[in-house]
Design a protein around this nucleic acid. Structure first.
Length: 406
RNA sequence: GUGGGUGUAGCUCAGUUGGUUAGAGCAUCAGGUUGUGGUUCUGAGGGCCGUGGGUUCGAUUCCCAUCAUCCACCCCA
């Protein structure tokens, strides 16, 4: 027997129903916020992710599905969605075109990690990217949109926000931080590495003994430049005004190198250790990094599988038709009726001759509203017996008179 | 990459201090006297007890290995 690869899952039944419910709900709301559907390839040049996601991230460092294609080019299955969207934005010269561009997408992402609850090697994200809008109101609207999506899906969450600064304030802060960090002894190996790669991320260290040593360190949030500080205060004011609960988390650092200014994370405490159900923020420099004209941008992604653990599927009413026969000669007759029915309503056909009871059971199981059966009497008279499983009413009508737009 | 847990029917799990034909519930299928569902009753099908090796007269049970899976660290959606 051949099994699916580790960390890769099939989707059936309620799982697939949840999946499409989430995507349809999120897409509907994104459209109302002015986002349009966009699609980019799942396979991209390795260099794209190295440059955008960042060499210092674990994603690029050890989690990418990277291989050579038959032409000898190094390619990667995308580990996240933003890089491809930005590449597409630049390649289509929309940076030169100016104006605002708002895209939403959903699809498969790949990361070569050890699977656990809420973490797969192939997983799915729904995300939005907004290009060309520098206002912090856009950051706010994106947060508001995610809240709308979770509200529509009936999912409870906590919101954490932070500011990661900009080229004006971040580099200077980073330097002084590194100086302080060099004065501290006995940091964990991860933190030692972070000093080299991305010192801000030490604040994200889960190691308790490290955290104790960091309490007296300067924080970026208290050392933001005027504009970043103003924007962050504005964001908080907007969230307050809309009664959106949040927590300022100074340790919140996005795992991807391209973020600046606003960073946020939606968290659920009901799904195990992998608790981030959505994350995002501003990335004003990424378009430029990837060869485009400097263009402000902000976006987010939500993890569909993690949300699948939380959503309740809306109750499905009985709908459509079930056709069955008690005499085999009637099969061609119900085949024709079913074909007609399917023009306007879902419909299943049982090919096997069965007793009425078995057909009713079958119709019930199929979730059909109407059970239509031709037995020996009906066959002789050119009629069909129909029962409304919801109203518990039944009638026998001439085959030609059967209509499906009830 | 590191640590721990678990592999018995389609699913959820019992079980055997090592002993002949391995169990339950759910699901599936068939029936409960001429053709009435979602609640019932009866019956049937379905298992190389994850795989390979070892100990033993005998292993699903004990030991080792291996694979798979789950959870956690790490990291992140």
């Amino acid at each position: 027997m051949i099994n699916a690869l580790r960390g890769m899952k099939d989707l059936h039944d309620v799982e697939s129903a949840k999946y499409s419910h989430i995507v349809e709900t999120a897409a509907g709301i994104a459209k109302r916020y002015g986002f349009e559907f966009a699609e980019t390839p799942q396979l991209e040049e390795t260099a794209l992710f190295r440059r955008s996601v960042g060499e210092s991230s674990d994603i690029v460092g050890k989690e990418m599905y990277e291989f050579e294609d038959k032409g000898g080019k190094s390619v990667c299955l995308r580990p996240e969605g933003t890089a491809g969207m930005v590449r597409s934005f630049v390649q289509n010269k929309l940076d030169r075109a100016g104006g605002k561009h708002r895209w939403f997408y959903h699809g498969t992402m790949f990361r070569y990690e050890r699977p656990q609850k809420g973490r797969l090697r192939q997983f799915h994200q729904f995300g939005c990217e907004s290009f060309g809008e520098a206002s912090v109101y856009e950051d706010f609207h994106i947060i508001l949109m995610i809240k709308d999506i979770f509200d529509a899906l009936g999912i409870r969450f906590k919101l954490a926000i932070n500011s990661l600064g900009c080229p004006q304030c971040m580099p200077g802060f980073k330097e002084t931080l590194v100086k302080h960090l060099h004065d501290i002894d006995d940091l964990c190996p991860d933190c030692d590495r972070r000093i080299q790669t991305n010192p801000i991320r030490v604040f994200d260290c889960k190691n308790g003994s490290c955290q104790e040593k960091f309490t007296s360190l300067p924080r970026l949030l208290e050392n933001l430049c005027g504009e970043c500080d103003e924007d962050f205060n504005e964001l908080k004011a907007l969230l307050d005004r809309f009664d959106i609960d949040y927590e300022v988390d100074r340790n919140l650092v996005r795992g991807l190198d391209y973020y600046s200014k606003t960073a946020f994370e939606f968290i659920s405490d009901e799904i195990g250790a992998q608790s981030a159900i959505a994350g995002g923020g501003r990335y004003d420099r990424l378009v430029e990094f990837l060869g485009g004209k400097p263009t402000p941008a902000v976006g987010f992604a939500l993890g569909i599988e993690r949300i699948m653990d939380l959503v309740q599927l809306p109750e499905q009413n009985r709908q459509g038709w079930y056709f069955g026969v008690m005499e085999e000669q009637a099969l061609h007759s119900i085949a024709r009726l079913a074909h007609k029915a399917r023009q306007s309503t879902p419909c299943t056909v049982e090919y096997k001759r069965k007793g009425l009871k078995a057909h009713l059971k079958g119709a019930d199981k199929a979730g059909a509203r109407y059970c239509a059966v031709i037995g020996s009497d009906e066959l002789q008279e050119g009629t069909i017996w129909v029962k409304d499983l919801q109203q518990k009413q039944e009638q026998t009508v001439a085959v030609d008179m059967l209509n499906f737009t009830r």
